[in-house]
Design a protein around this nucleic acid. Structure first.
Length: 276
DNA sequence: CTCGTTTCCTGTTCGC
DNA sequence: TGCGAACAGGAAACGA
């Protein structure tokens, strides 16, 4: 489940290795993975194009071409991008292969097939992918207590659900919402309209701090990334609460609890994150 | 605008 | 040991 830190890691690993390469051929094995345009058109339009650079927006990756056409992709739950030699063993569930001019291949695999690709021409409006609906990037200066209070402070739903709302803040998923709320000392199921300005202030500070921390500890070399099939950089040793149910709280030693908030499993410390 | 529900998918875990 | 059921979850689509 790549969230902002993992997507940023993938960008940092892949981008330097594909810049300036030409896409010689595109093979789509699962047409439904290409959301727009039709898969054959997707292949046709990309063949022969040169890769300029990559950017990230929330959990989306954008591969820019010299023509200013752009590939947009979302990895969703199990999507994975891997740059491999052409003769490298193919991962199960590989759905798209970009054959590149240095005889390497950029491969997209996705067990659960939730991940999607879009391709937009230069100046073509993106009304499909959802990028346009995203809220602010967590590292932008606009992420202030005032912004959070204005956009989320009147909502009745749980603060955790608000953090997961991509149209408010882009890039936070289930793992890092739990981590952020733990660091901020806020109970995940607490209604957003119950938070005080001090709570929003803590969140405004903790959100970029936690995300940049996890990007930092995520650092991985291209060699290790390929070696581990793009799977083993997931911060597991650094998570304080996510997946740590019934283990002791790293701050106070109390046993961590698990509840379901908005349909998502949520782990928290009943002492450090008291319900008010 | 906001809310809850359903859908998409397969690998893993769980209960009997 | 083996089977089916439940679970995991990002985000769109839907109805209210």
């Amino acid at each position: 489940m790549p969230e902002l830190p993992e997507v940023e890691t993938i960008k940092r690993v892949i981008e330097p290795q594909i810049q300036g390469l030409v896409i010689d051929k595109v093979t789509v094995k699962r047409p439904e993975v290409v959301a727009y345009p039709a898969a054959d058109e997707f292949c046709g339009l990309l063949t022969g194009q040169t890769i300029s650079h990559m950017t990230r927006r929330g959990k989306f990756l954008i591969i820019w071409l010299n023509s200013n056409d752009r590939i947009i992709l979302h990895l969703r739950m199990t999507g994975c991008l891997l740059l491999t030699p052409a003769d490298y063993p193919e991962e199960k569930h590989t759905h798209i292969i970009f054959s590149l001019s240095n005889s390497m291949e950029l491969r997209f695999s996705d067990t659960r097939r939730f991940g999607r690709f879009w391709l937009f021409r230069k100046d073509e409006a993106d009304t499909y992918s959802g990028v346009e609906k995203l809220g602010i990037e967590p590292f932008y200066a606009e992420l202030t207590a005032e912004y959070l209070n204005t956009h989320l402070g009147k909502r009745k739903k749980a603060v955790k659900e608000c953090l997961l709302d991509q149209s408010a803040i882009a890039g936070i998923g289930n793992i890092y919402s739990d981590e952020i709320l733990f660091t901020a000392g806020i109970y995940p199921a607490r209604p957003a309209n119950n938070l005080k300005i001090e709570d929003w202030e803590r969140l405004a500070a903790v959100i970029p701090e936690r995300l940049s921390y996890f990007i930092e500890v995520n650092r991985i070399t291209p060699e290790d990334y390929l070696e581990t099939k793009g799977q083993d950089y997931r911060n597991t040793p650094f998570l304080q609460v996510y997946g740590q149910e019934s283990k002791p709280c790293p701050k106070c030693g109390e046993t961590l609890c698990r509840i379901v908030v908005g349909g998502r499993g949520s782990v928290y410390c009943p002492v450090c994150q008291r319900d008010l």
